[in-house]
Design a protein around this nucleic acid. Structure first.
Lengths: 229, 229
DNA sequence: CGTGCGCTTGACTTTTTTCAATAAAGGTGG
DNA sequence: CCACCTTTATTGAAAAAAGTCAAGCGCACG
């Protein structure tokens, strides 16, 4: 697939005409990262924004002691690194490839110029950032208002909804990474999965596969109406 | 102050010309809320966005048991309720007046039309949402990577920076509200303030006034390099 | 085939919350 | 301006949740 075609397939760039796709293609650079490679670091000067072509990228924060909080996971068609492009300054977090990944890079000034000239692109970006704010709102809610079993239950149900409402889930992250996404540590996650299994809510099939046995109870947990004995 | 002048003084609308301010003034409605009054509720259909003229507004989430997490505090010149305007759907949180408050309300469709026609307004909005994402990033970081003493220390230093780097701080929130902002409960906040005072980091002058005695130690706490004995 | 990393589990500590009682503050109407 | 009453703040004791440390297992990958 050539650059312009790749660009046309990115949701953020929907509704632009071919010449604008061509303009974007002219300023875009392709970059490749291998698994575990850092794409940018917190505090780094932001030269532009990124869109995933192939692979997956995690955006995360690190505490001084090395504990990690995942903020986002982005896959093909999703963009990241917009914040400093529009707000100025530096990257507020780290970005790292979770697997071999190819991204498109759009230099800041050229991109801003394009947004200036194209109001539908601007509205796409506004919608994009708004959706991201909404997801952050719900992450903040989860972190401060729910305890880990509730967050985990919500995540399992989310996975199920993304996998066709199936009761057989496949984790797309290691348990360590999942713990980081849920704002906890692997030991705690492990214990809570074991408790959920003991209570008959789920069945641990193997490292990466979980079967939902009692969806209602998970929903009650996720909404905070119940707690895990 | 008339509507157009009020609108011209809102940072989000900087860089627009007088005719655009007039357009905005034409679609804007003034609304008043008394202290404690709810401006909108989570899940409500979003009819437009708001900007504070006078007063203060808190944006917050509620857990099922009634625990509150404050997401934002907005004062004069600041806007809120943008997310559903651009992302569609409903308000993701509650908004409530902290004091007698006057706001401007901009109906959704009319506002979007204006953004479409004016790329500098669009860029202002993009910068605004980006800054908000950055603040959320740091709230998430705090909630999941720091414990309460660190969050409190960071907040005290933030207050100090907002009050001219003075060591004499005036809380602009009740302790209950401050606890909600920090993602904890009043009892815990009270205990940690008492501990900080016992350790000589601060002096509790009265309900709303705190003096910083040991700024360095607070900075170490806030950055997670130290913990409170 | 071995080494390492990720996962699990146990025992323990720390942090935070819960519940309850009291004290202080703030606002209101007399 | 004061007395009253409601709301807010503090403190203690106990419980719960999560994190730390350490050991052991297993699977995966080189």
């Amino acid at each position: 697939m050539d650059l312009a075609a790749q660009i046309a397939s990115i949701p953020m760039f929907e509704g632009l005409d071919a010449s604008q796709h061509a303009n974007l293609a002219r300023i875009a650079l392709e970059k490749e990262f291998s698994k575990g490679e850092v794409i940018f670091s917190e505090g780094e000067d932001a030269a532009g924004l990124y869109a995933v072509s192939i692979g997956r990228v995690k955006i995360y924060k690190l505490s001084r002691e090395g504990k990690e909080q995942i903020l986002h996971l982005f896959g093909p068609g999703e963009s990241f690194g917009e914040v400093p492009v529009f707000a100025g300054g530096r990257f507020p977090a780290y970005a790292e490839a979770l697997e071999p990944t190819r991204v498109l890079f759009f230099p800041r000034q050229a991109f801003v110029d394009l947004v200036k000239r194209d109001s539908s692109l601007a509205l796409n970006m506004l919608a994009d950032l708004s959706r991201r704010l909404r997801r952050f709102t719900s992450l903040i809610e989860d972190l401060s208002l729910k305890e880990v079993p509730g967050r985990l239950a919500a995540h399992l149900l989310y996975l199920s909804s993304r996998q066709g409402e199936s009761d057989d889930l496949v984790l797309d992250l290691s348990k360590t990474q999942l713990a980081s996404l849920l704002g906890t540590i692997p030991e705690t996650l492990s214990r809570i999965l074991a408790r959920m299994a003991r209570e008959g809510y789920i069945e641990l099939r193997n490292n990466r596969q979980i079967r939902i046995l009692d969806r209602e109870s998970l929903e009650l947990l996720a909404s905070g109406e119940t707690r895990l004995s």
